[in-house]
Design a protein around this nucleic acid. Sequence first.
DNA 1: AAACGAATTGAGACCGGTCTCACTCTACGA
DNA 2: TCGTAGAGTGAGACCGGTCTCAATTCGTTT
Lengths: 355, 355
Amino acid sequence: MSEPGNGRREVTVSDVAAAAKVSKATAARALGDYGAVSDAVRDRVQRAAEELGYRPNALARTMSTGRSHTLGIVVGDIENPFFAQATRGAADVAVAAGFDLILSNSDEEAAAEAKAIGVQLAKRVDGLLVAPASSIDPTNLRPVVESGRPLVLFDRAVPELEVDTVIAANRTGARRLTRLLLDAGHRRIAFISTIAHDGDYRLGDTLASTSVAERVDGFTATLAEAGVPNADRYVHLNARRDGVEVLVQRILGSAEPATAIIASDSLVALAAFRAARRLGVSIPDELSLVAFDDADWTELTTPGVTVMAQPIHEIGAEAARLLIRRIGGDGAPPVTKVLDQHLVERGSIAPPGRP
Amino acid sequence: MSEPGNGRREVTVSDVAAAAKVSKATAARALGDYGAVSDAVRDRVQRAAEELGYRPNALARTMSTGRSHTLGIVVGDIENPFFAQATRGAADVAVAAGFDLILSNSDEEAAAEAKAIGVQLAKRVDGLLVAPASSIDPTNLRPVVESGRPLVLFDRAVPELEVDTVIAANRTGARRLTRLLLDAGHRRIAFISTIAHDGDYRLGDTLASTSVAERVDGFTATLAEAGVPNADRYVHLNARRDGVEVLVQRILGSAEPATAIIASDSLVALAAFRAARRLGVSIPDELSLVAFDDADWTELTTPGVTVMAQPIHEIGAEAARLLIRRIGGDGAPPVTKVLDQHLVERGSIAPPGRP
DNA sequence: AAACGAATTGAGACCGGTCTCACTCTACGA
DNA sequence: TCGTAGAGTGAGACCGGTCTCAATTCGTTT
């Protein structure tokens, strides 16, 4: 504390070598624990290192070995509980395997994502974990496959790109949720997602996220099977997070108001719940609500929210596992892991009895 | 896609230089945009770089310049919304200033924290953002100040260490919350935190987190001022996150049950709310509940939870700003920024009328 | 036209590790 | 007793940038 020590040059292998009176090569061997060194010398070197406060420079090591023991992860927004959990899952697997994580937020924007990926590549990460902002346009991801570095996508796939991918069984989950509402007697069900989309959704439109696309597919297909015409007009995209409230208001105030809402993620569910509360419409009596993701608060509301839970932690973890395997040299053809979702029934569904 | 390009050696400045028929030094100047280069040559080099698909190696650059343009951040757990928000705040400031972030979770454990810090230092981050697992023991942080790298603490201070720190006005916030309950007529108020502590809390004990310590201080002091004896026996620490329920049960089932709870963070509040729900005790009629942090769900429950909101995003952002200023060479004496909390009143407080 | 200064360029050291290769020294088998 | 395998060590190249310094080119000034 008395001498801040700023500006003091870092201690290097050469310094240690000099102190231990051996060559740089030998010191490096003793410290790096590779090659052959006599016990006596190893001791001497390690003592010297200890004394001088030697701290290895991981960058220099990366320069010569080519391995950085670092993974990059690009998420939409770390504040989104989904990404926070997935990141944690990935981080746990990573540190267990001796890797650490460089984190970037893309805000689901192509430009920010491209920049983030560029930085990660420049930092020579050993591999990249990405929840791609666009499932349609692989431009941002091209540089990483061109760099030869392994890439694993999670939460969303990019059909044009043949790379390892970890996703959830969204279509099945959506069918299940939709069926649940249908069975309760609902016919006018709104599906809400914040995903960006040009204009109103029409059946067959391609969406920027395969996971939302699958949910929409499952939703509209199940509706169609139940004989509900024009299922696509119940799909509401582009919901800005702070705009869900007006959207819900519009949905409920229309000529043929929806009697149930499927929220595509927990943030939308939260906004929808809040909207219903503010508008004075009672859940589930006047409006049924179901959502994807078992956010912690969903059991706290009155009523609790019935949700399709995703193994979010595991999505991140599995993605990291896959990536680390690739880094280890696994050359098998790319795989797509599809993880199951499961239903958690609470009290937010009731028959659509209008008061 | 037809040629995977794996194993292809990275394109370097030398390659570009050769292609552009200039020296390595000149090519580097043209690419790195430093030094003087004629327009003609610059063009030629940049075209060559483009053609070859040159991507700078940030590590090599760091090796010679000594700057990594990377900040390290060590949080308790990125899944904790508090840390997620603070991290986002820091990340935003960081990228705006041209830095990126290496993220580590300490799980509030000394060993994991030490390791994380070690890795970050090895990676030669330009500076470190840490929410220290222990405010008492500066051991883990010593290496970073010894390395001469700037360090900024957030959420908690470490009194023994004179470094920049960003915290919230926790004592004031706690007083305010306590007074609110007192004014409603409560006298037996439980304060619950998950923070680790040896044995039961006694007035004057030092806590591992200054932020919790300040809250406890504010709490007990306010209680004492109101003439409540033995305020310290209402302080419950060591609450394992999944153990809050039994704790609440014990608190409510004792001879002199608490009539109100102050949750030290939103996760505890969540658990407490859930516990009350499961135990069938009604909030606020049978139990008042207030908490720190304005988690998004707190306005969704019935009733909403009255909370002391912290500017979490700003805590992270300000910490990053401070850090970047230090990295820029600011040698002013260390500062401690104290950010204000503000009360958000909802409906979770009522007089302690036992039914 | 000679001299001078600024702009441009090239050669090569350097950052801090790893790793190859050659050399020395010892122990063991033929 | 000699040859040789193998352990232990040192010298120096290398990774891919930056940067210093000297050399060259050019335009001006007098």
